[in-house]
Design a protein around this nucleic acid. Sequence first.
DNA 1: TGGTAACCGGATGGATCATCCGAATGGATC
DNA 2: GATCCATTCGGATGATCCATCCGGTTACCA
Lengths: 195, 195
Amino acid sequence: MTTTPLRKDAARNWERIIAVARALVDQGTTLQLNDVARRAGLGVGTVYRHFATPEALLEAVATPCLEALTAHGERALADPDPWRALEAFLARTLEAQVTDASLAPVTAAPEDALPRTTELKAALWSTGRVLLDRARAAGAVRPDLAPGDLVPLMCGLAYAVDVHGARDAAARVDTAHRYLATLLEGLRAATPPGP
Amino acid sequence: MTTTPLRKDAARNWERIIAVARALVDQGTTLQLNDVARRAGLGVGTVYRHFATPEALLEAVATPCLEALTAHGERALADPDPWRALEAFLARTLEAQVTDASLAPVTAAPEDALPRTTELKAALWSTGRVLLDRARAAGAVRPDLAPGDLVPLMCGLAYAVDVHGARDAAARVDTAHRYLATLLEGLRAATPPGP
DNA sequence: TGGTAACCGGATGGATCATCCGAATGGATC
DNA sequence: GATCCATTCGGATGATCCATCCGGTTACCA
């Protein structure tokens, strides 16, 4: 992607908007562009030019975290133990999802507002697919689970943690680990139970 | 529950509203009270008097299905095989969640708009808890999974099916069964399976 | 059949949202 | 260092949607 040269004030305002949005997301508030503009001390038009929709702003907020996850995924690929690699990758992804409120909506959304988001999601999913395939080849993975099921299941677990209702990050991460361990145990089962 | 005497026209309009709301829910549209009124050929005030909020209307739409699930749960308690009972109960619940769009938001909501909904949810969860406890006593269930985890996990699986993106009911039910089988295998895994 | 209470439903006020355009600023050129 | 042009700023604007209120009407009961 060619880096578009950005004017000084535009860049400064971009940073402001992102900072305010990040604070709002961490606070649990749903992003409202008008509200973001007011809190950032900027005009509404400024915010709308930078980010056409709340989804675009949310994706911009989530981008750094997605990049970190992608980098971690690439490192997981280097682990010689396929199971440990898959487990670490999924655990890290799930932790991020239940810790950072900006991630869950972005990963679960079928459409992306920013091209960069599409890139990162594709890279992340590809890594997950490779890790799953490697684990399948090495150990025993349920045959009826397609690679396309990995992302929905992860989003589902993150959603389950939300429904569970724990507020502080530590409890959420703990719950996520419990759920993931259960699911992984089911993934690992060689043959599905027959009737 | 004491049946409140309802005037003829009021009852007729109540039915109309429910019917229109049911159609909208099946269509996938989010309920908007103003829109419901227009489609039902009624005034806005009429709809707002019957249902104060869209959530209340949604719960009223979901009530019959919740009652059916509760009844099915009571029957599952009669099954002598604890594992089969739990499996059937969860399968039925999940099928309903992925088939009827009114259920997922109601079950996942932390607060209820209608007292009847609170009753039904409590009964349903109680049944699930008993079934889980029985299964735990009979066979082997992961010890780190609390009874309070059952509902979040079910909601999570239903959400996963949504993220998966299948449109027609058959594919959704199939996906739900795959996910549930995986999770149940994980639930079962702690110690060698009993029977 | 007439009275009363409850219900119906359109009109109203408030809020929020996304867009537009004149004014101002930054960067490039001479 | 001064000028010019493109880009951006930011408040004002129009539109849409939501929830409430009150006069007219209907159903139930004596």
